[in-house]
């Protein structure tokens, strides 16, 4: 049985742990601190917690000011508003300012409610452009974790490594795909299944789908390599090149517009290192819509984001490469 856990809860708990270890960690919220589970941090460290109200531009720029003075601010709200509501602030107040060899200010943007799986709130709140927006801003690193183990590890890495980082969490509980002792490293993908016939590179909630697709393809005698590419930027070009060389084709999976998102990032990399056929699973340049929790798999299916779609894409690639 697959175990599920809530990313936001783990994020909030990890913040408290690192907050105890590092007095420079501060948290900034925008009236969504209950939802983002950062409120307990505020209870524990009232002097290092700032709720600026529904004002995302202000949220980001205050965080920048705090970071400028040596703090490590975690700025959190929903993905629809961060980056949606404050691209200019991210670019000019966080990513651009650089001095003494340090690129950008040390602000950690951790958002939840990414992608279609937000569900009931509808298309207005289903952020399918955040990877695209964030990865084109110089100095910003972009992470799409697949489970709570990733979230805990990345949150810790965020404190240890300098720079503007962005991480997108899912709204709903996510299946645990990693072992407890899994090591995470910026810019390094994690091979979850080895295989030789095709590669499935996935991020976020699509990692579990990729694993399911690989399992079902295995029954049909197709050996798939599955990689969790939680580090969308910097992307693990070496691992992708190796996969391309050894498996001959790549399917990318994301809960995001296929334009300028994760699949695009993989394509950009592969096209320069070892071009092979690529199929991108993701939202095909249209908006989402409301779906109750029980209907979210149907919404994803409507947009072609399921393990079956992934399997079909693998087969399609193999028919081309043979």
């Amino acid at each position: 049985m697959t175990e599920f856990a809530d990313m936001r809860t783990v994020y909030g708990e990890t913040l408290i742990k690192i907050g105890e270890e590092n007095p420079d960690v501060v948290v900034v919220g925008a009236d969504t601190t209950d939802s983002l589970k950062t409120k307990p941090f505020g209870k524990k460290f009232p002097n290092r917690f700032f709720n600026v109200g529904i004002a995302e531009a202000n949220l980001i720029t205050i965080a920048a000011g705090l970071a400028n003075e040596g703090k490590i601010p975690f700025a959190s709200t929903y993905a629809a508003f961060l980056p949606g509501r404050c691209v200019d602030q991210i670019r000019n107040a966080i990513a651009y300012p650089s001095r003494n060899g340090k690129n950008g200010l040390n602000v950690k943007m951790v958002v939840s409610h990414g992608g279609l799986s937000v569900g009931a709130d509808g298309g207005s709140h289903q952020q399918i452009e955040d990877i695209a927006i964030m990865r084109v801003i110089p100095n910003v690193k972009v992470f799409i974790p697949s489970d709570t183990i990733s979230v805990e590890n990345l949150t810790r890495i965020f404190v240890q490594s300098y720079g503007p980082f962005f991480m997108r969490l899912a709204r709903s509980k996510t299946p645990i795909v990693h072992s407890k002792d899994q090591k995470f490293e910026i810019g390094k993908g994690i091979v979850l299944r080895d295989g030789s016939d095709c590669t499935i590179a996935a991020c976020g909630i699509t990692v579990q789908m990729a694993l399911e697709a690989a399992d079902s393809l295995k029954q049909e005698g197709v050996s798939c390599r599955v990689i969790d590419m939680f580090s969308v930027k910097p992307i693990d070009s070496d691992l992708l090149e190796k996969a391309a060389r050894e498996t001959g084709g790549i399917v990318t999976c994301e809960e995001h517009n296929i334009m300028a998102g994760f699949g695009s990032a993989v394509s950009e990399s592969i096209s320069e290192t070892y071009p092979v056929p690529i199929r991108r699973i993701g939202v095909r340049d249209r908006f989402g819509e409301s779906a109750r929790d029980s209907e979210i798999p149907l919404l994803l299916e409507k947009h072609g984001i399921t393990s079956i779609h992934i399997s079909n894409a693998v087969k399609e690639i193999r028919s081309k490469t043979r």
Binding site: F50, T61, E69, N92
Partner: peptide
């Protein structure tokens, strides 16, 4: 402060002031 995009400086200053308070 890397200014230019208008409207940002006051928020940035507030962040600085909050850090100084901590």
């Amino acid at each position: 402060f890397c200014g230019g995009s208008l409207g940002l400086g006051l928020s940035f200053s507030l962040g600085m002031a909050l850090a100084a308070r901590i």
